[in-house]
Design a protein around this nucleic acid. Sequence first.
DNA 1: TTTTTGGGTCAGCCATATTGACTTAATTTT
DNA 2: AAAATTAAGTCAATATGGCTGACCCAAAAA
Lengths: 190, 190
Amino acid sequence: MADPKKHANLFLHQDSLHEAVELLFFAYRDFTGVADAILAEHGFGRAHHRVLHFVAQAPGLSVSELLATLRITKQSLSRVLKQLVEQDYVTSKASGQDGRRRELTLTDKGQALQNRLARAQQDLILSAYEQAEASSVDGFRKVMLGLIQDPGDRARFAAQLPQPQGQATGLSQRSGVNARPTPQPLDRRR
Amino acid sequence: MADPKKHANLFLHQDSLHEAVELLFFAYRDFTGVADAILAEHGFGRAHHRVLHFVAQAPGLSVSELLATLRITKQSLSRVLKQLVEQDYVTSKASGQDGRRRELTLTDKGQALQNRLARAQQDLILSAYEQAEASSVDGFRKVMLGLIQDPGDRARFAAQLPQPQGQATGLSQRSGVNARPTPQPLDRRR
DNA sequence: TTTTTGGGTCAGCCATATTGACTTAATTTT
DNA sequence: AAAATTAAGTCAATATGGCTGACCCAAAAA
């Protein structure tokens, strides 16, 4: 961390930092773009996609867990979730343990759509991986992880990455509803 | 590029691809978050930031060039640009060569805000770079560049990166006014 | 039993995007 | 010189996805 080489390429960093800002802008725009096209066929938007993604990833998660992950308000989620449930992409049933909690899962229809969306984005990522060298992937992962501020969110990405001294610099805690995203069991499906 | 190792870690890719989707989601959310906080102080949003960024980066660019880069409609840009001009963050003056074109530049006030925004995001990126190894940065750049679909947009990022079929572009890196992203047919799809 | 929690909903506001139809002025084409 | 094209700006209407505040209900916890 306190690396002498670091100082040596600071001027190089200058350029690199500005470039990185644009790389993030363009890459994210195109990354979401491939999904937007599919979503539009169904009259859905990115908000729906996020729900499908996180429900697919942790089936049975509760509304409040989803809220904590998405960091939006209950009312905002409600709108999209209602559509997804009404149109049979997502099921919401009361938990056996705690009748207040609604456990969210994807229907077959929802899973099918989510598969399409994931495939489209993963194809793009794969193509980017293939254009780079194998070693680039690890660097990519490390830098991306470094951009994530919230320790709870970081924890989703298990393994290696040295979690630096927990700098939970403000602006993280918009806990509109409850506490932490509950370090999420995170099922590594597929 | 056609690398035998590629096949060997395909199963590893599977996990990695899913992870990358989430990395992009969380990283971008936090990356934009640091700027959102500053923008909010001024009653601005991300749309304003994008204008400030691209005007700062290529001072004197025209409205239509900006539109091509942002890929939004004239009407959408108009609202935001009008605010920035009225509040003296951006100047818009007719070109000497072509009186129809309005050349956009930042005022000192606009440059000051843009500096703050850039610094905030660059600090975040720098911290991510520092948490990774020096070698990670190059991998990050390569993968991010691979995610960018439009050749015109890719061309902004000069130098090394093996543009799939591409020649090593003689563009001197990151020039202030950079080679315009080829006037862009402006595909309004969706 | 009272309080808290998880979830849902109504109502309204704001920011950002969209399409379509025009206007104006400047430049280019014919 | 007249006509066509281009760059920019504008009006109006619409959609999406955020937000706040105020409630309600039922289940669980205190």
